[in-house]
Design a protein around this nucleic acid. Structure first.
Lengths: 203, 203
DNA sequence: GGCTAAACGGACCCCGGTCCGGTTTCTATT
DNA sequence: AATAGAAACCGGACCGGGGTCCGTTTAGCC
């Protein structure tokens, strides 16, 4: 059935992606680069699956095989940008990073997340479900806020309280407030700080 | 230039919709009915602009002229369902309607909004921007919560606090919690009550 | 070099959205 | 009441883009 000697590929070791073929990996890179360039030069709307494919010199089918859907592609690009931010939260300088008191960290997190969301608004919107939530970014935020709340001695259903702090930062909500209600970013931020204060003070 | 006697149509009286022609109104009705039937029998996904048009016995262009877009059509249908709910909030029996203490009303509002959102989840999602927000439904909710908060003596940026209470009820958030995180509706509700408590207690 | 599993590509389908020439409704006028 | 004219409406051909499919090619392994 099989030889007594196994090459390294024989044990999947439970790695979810069972290794990607070289050409596949090359194309994935090329596609990400092509998409990024398109976004930078012509905006998110110019990112057509056919455009991206053509620019990367591959067929349309390949884009879908690598990224599942347009949203998936956007999600992948977004993830790249967000990783940087996550690093700043995990190991950057205080007060966003570790080293400052929990409350300072929480407030810094709020401001930072607010700015980042607005900065990537187009991308997040285009990434749909794979955008703010589901993707790594969201789980990470929940985890982090939850941790800070615990650190602050807040008791209760922490995951839900974290959601309460995070959901007002959803693109949809922010978009509405900024573009339709005409609220300033500063005011929104102040509101969020107040919300955090009330939640923390609640014990 | 014009006769000294004016028929009633001569003064627009600032009515936004300058009156709809009879056939147009008839088609609008027919289209709404057709769409509703399609949703009830085959689900939201079966609501194709062409399907709806065919079932209503009109051309595709007509659907777009009446409802602007698919999202617009969904929004129109949704609005219909939501009107009922709004009536219950404004003038229904307590504690949801008037007559109960503000806190009771607020909590009843939370539960009711939660259930309603989940009930119409498909529709709200399909209505996109015209769904939970922008549409009448959203502004109404903000206004109502704001009013109840004022009644409860809460001070601060009331519109933002209202948003803080409303944004955890967005379909996107709820969907994620229920379908991905596997949270029960009751737990989400309890969490919301706790959130309301903290916000009100904050003064 | 030969074999298999995976990747490739582009033709194809479906649906949302646009457009414009023909038709219907409404009002004013006789 | 009949009619003329214009504004509004109608329909369906048309377009672009997301997503699927399958016959063909290629990378990786023996």
């Amino acid at each position: 059935m099989s030889s007594p000697v196994h090459s390294r590929r024989d044990l999947p070791l439970l790695d979810a992606p069972p290794v990607e073929r070289a050409d596949a990996a090359r194309n994935r890179q090329a596609l990400l680069v092509a998409a990024r360039e398109l976004i930078d030069s012509c905006g998110v709307d110019a990112v057509t699956m056919e455009n991206v494919a053509a620019r990367a010199g591959v067929g349309k089918g390949t884009v879908f095989r690598r990224f599942e859907s347009r949203e998936g592609l956007m999600g992948a690009i977004l993830n790249f940008s967000e990783t940087e931010w996550q690093a700043a939260v995990i190991s950057g300088p205080p007060p966003l990073g570790p080293g400052a008191p929990p409350l300072d960290r929480l407030l810094a997190f709020g401001r930072s997340r607010l700015d980042t969301t607005l900065l990537h608004a187009d991308l997040i919107r285009a990434a749909g479900t794979a955008g703010s939530r589901a993707a790594a970014a969201y789980s990470f935020s929940v985890m982090h806020v939850r941790y800070l709340l615990a650190e602050l001695g807040v008791t209760g259903d922490l995951p839900l309280l974290a959601t309460a702090l995070l959901s007002p930062m959803e693109v949809l909500v922010l978009d509405h407030q900024v573009n339709l209600d005409g609220l300033s970013v500063d005011r929104i931020h102040d509101g969020w700080v107040d919300l955090a204060r009330r939640i923390v003070a609640g014990g």
